[in-house]
């Protein structure tokens, strides 16, 4: 399909682009010496970049898996795999999410593809909620951060699972249709050869990255801003009783936007200040929803859906924790 001349042209273009980028790099070093800004801006920038550097590999893996789903999984597969029964489908999606080692950034493009392929929205949500919260790395890091105390780790997993189920069931009653922002066209071309399929997987991944990347970046920038300019100490001083402490810790989880695999130590460090119920609020709510994640969801789902979803999760997490107070 590609002529030799075309291949050569592509190679030359690649080299040319590499040269442009290296030139930009050299130029930027010159410019860096000229600009001078307040130190807090530089701090914010460091936090902003570190969140991105940490999240990007997961997002890229996520968009690649999304690309694979787009090309290799047909709507028919989905119809066959997902149980007809709503409750069975929700249970299955939560269990699959629990087995699937994902983080909250990587999972959004995957859920988008699945829902686009015909997975019911409530099943997609179940998967979205349990994926980042329940996986081996999170269990292990929680266990260790809380001084080999299995209680918190176990409560995090079990309550998290229950909450995900409840939220997914509520969603199934409230929403019909896939709630995706754009209408997802049914693939009209059949990719034939494997090589073609692989090529399309990567092409889809590129488009997905540019589509979703900007939301991740906005979310990371906001999280960095909050961390640089707003004192979490002020927030913490608001938490008196169990209920208000839980609200405070949930709010903290939302604005800090930590990766679910890295939040255990931070959560543990609040143990001297707050009851375990509030700590669990931090540990369960954070992986389900945070600022970075909300923005990524806005890139996929209708704003009305995202708003209600955030509201439902917030209320359910809070109520569940108040019902099953631990420690």
């Amino acid at each position: 399909m590609l002529t030799r001349r075309h291949t050569l042209l592509v190679e030359l273009t690649g080299l040319f682009i590499f040269a442009i980028v290296m030139t930009l790099l050299t130029l930027s070093e010159q410019v860096e010496k000229i600009i001078e800004l307040p130190k807090s801006i530089y701090h914010m920038n460091m936090l902003f970049l570190s969140i991105l550097i940490e999240a990007l590999p997961f997002v890229l893996i996520g968009v690649l898996i999304a690309g694979l789903i787009q090309v290799f999984v047909t709507d028919e597969h989905i119809r066959r795999w997902i149980p007809r029964n709503k409750y069975l489908a929700i249970t299955m999606s939560c269990v699959v999410g629990a087995c699937f080692p994902a983080c909250e950034c990587g999972i959004v493009p995957i859920v988008r593809r699945l829902v686009g392929k015909g997975v019911p929205i409530y099943a997609g949500i179940g998967f979205l909620l349990t994926g980042p919260l329940i996986n081996p790395i999170v269990i292990l890091s929680t266990y260790m951060a809380f001084g080999n105390d299995a209680k918190i780790a176990a409560a995090r997993m079990i309550l998290g699972f229950v909450i995900a189920m409840v939220v997914a069931i509520i969603i199934s009653f409230l929403f019909k249709g896939n709630q995706l922002k754009q209408k997802f066209p049914v693939p009209s071309i059949k990719h034939t050869g494997l090589q073609e399929k692989v090529k399309h997987t990567f092409t889809h991944a590129v488009d997905e990255f540019f589509d979703m990347g900007k939301y991740l970046i906005i979310g990371a920038a906001l999280a960095a801003f909050v961390q640089t300019y707003i004192s979490s100490g002020d927030l913490v001083s608001l938490g008196g009783g169990v209920a208000s402490a839980t609200v405070v810790m949930m709010a903290l989880a939302y604005i800090l936007s930590l990766c679910s695999e890295a939040d255990a130590f931070i959560g543990a460090s609040f143990r001297g200040l707050f009851p375990d119920t509030a700590i669990l609020g931090f540990l369960i709510y954070g992986p389900m929803i945070d600022m970075k994640n909300t923005f990524m969801m806005l890139s996929v789902f209708k704003a009305k859906f995202v708003t209600l979803f955030v509201l439902i999760v917030t209320i359910i997490v809070f109520l569940t924790l108040m019902l099953f107070q631990v420690g």
Binding site: L25, E32, K39, I41, Y42, H43, T228, S231, S232
Partner: peptide
Amino acid sequence: GLLFPETTLDASIAEKKG
């Protein structure tokens, strides 16, 4: 990333982090 210099977190961040 390319234009701003790198910094190390300091007491001003410690204050916000708590």
